[in-house]
């Protein structure tokens, strides 16, 4: 046996075999399970009509919805449920736009209509919204806190909306707004909303906008007092800004 030629043949065969093995087509890693649907951000939303003019009887929130699996070339429907534990009533406090994932679409912002009802003046109602299965979609995923009406970091099946027509103290008042406007009162807050036109109080925004808001509030309070005398809050204290 010609040993040299044998070695050469063996090495060449291995090399060719290995190189051809690299040419084989990999199967793409694809989602192959049932189509599913979920909220792509978990959230608890606090909404108050009190920062809106009285002419506002309906306002719209947008819930983020996303599917798992490929888009299809037909409209598909999904289901939402307002849980029995909710104090907000579907069709009275809250209504949904058509629950449809349009063809060739992976995600939507679903309009949710909030209705200003007289009872909201002295109460807060809560809508615990859950995704439920439909003919087109199974449930998305939960990988965290679970349970009807609760949301967690990775709970993508539940959404909670608190609705009121009361002026509620912003959650960040004692950490943020107190530095600019002092002690909270509903009268002060209502005045601030009225003169600044600001409806979202979750953050201060940019420095120049914040300064303008503070300046505007002070100037407006000055003019108010010139015309009406001191503004007195619900605690009997004069409204002042530091």
């Amino acid at each position: 046996m010609n040993l040299f030629n044998s070695y050469t043949r063996i090495i060449a065969t291995l090399a060719i075999g290995l190189s051809l093995a690299g040419c084989s087509k990999n199967d793409r890693l694809m989602y192959e399970e049932d189509p599913r649907i979920y909220f792509y951000t978990s959230a608890v939303v606090d909404y108050t009509f009190a920062v809106r003019p009285a002419s506002y009887t309906v306002d719209t929130l947008y819930m983020p919805i996303r599917i798992m699996g490929s888009a299809q070339n037909r409209d598909r429907t999904f289901n939402l449920k307002v849980e029995d534990s909710s104090t907000a009533k579907l069709g009275y406090h809250i209504t949904f736009a058509p629950l449809v994932i349009p063809a060739n679409t992976y995600q939507i912002s679903l309009p949710v209509y909030l209705h200003r009802k007289p009872g909201l003046k002295d109460s807060i109602v809560t809508a615990h919204i859950s995704i439920v299965e439909s003919a087109d979609f199974k449930l998305g995923y939960i990988n965290g806190v679970t349970g009807t009406g609760t949301t967690g970091v990775l709970d993508r099946l539940h959404y909670r909306i608190n609705i009121t027509d009361q002026l509620t103290k912003p959650a960040n008042w004692e950490t943020v707004w107190v530095n600019y406007f002092g002690v909270f009162s509903k009268v002060k807050f209502q005045f601030l909303i009225q003169v600044t036109g600001r409806t979202s109080w979750t953050s201060t925004g940019l420095p120049q906008d914040l300064n303008f808001m503070i300046q505007t509030a002070k100037y407006a309070l000055y003019n108010y007092e010139l015309a009406n005398g001191p503004l007195i809050d619900e605690f009997g204290n004069r409204v002042v800004f530091p």
Partner: peptide, 21 residues
Amino acid sequence: NLVGGFPGIKKWGEALSTPDG
């Protein structure tokens, strides 16, 4: 008015009040 690297246009704001408001 402000300057700075943060985004958004900077304009002159409302008149400044005296310390007593």
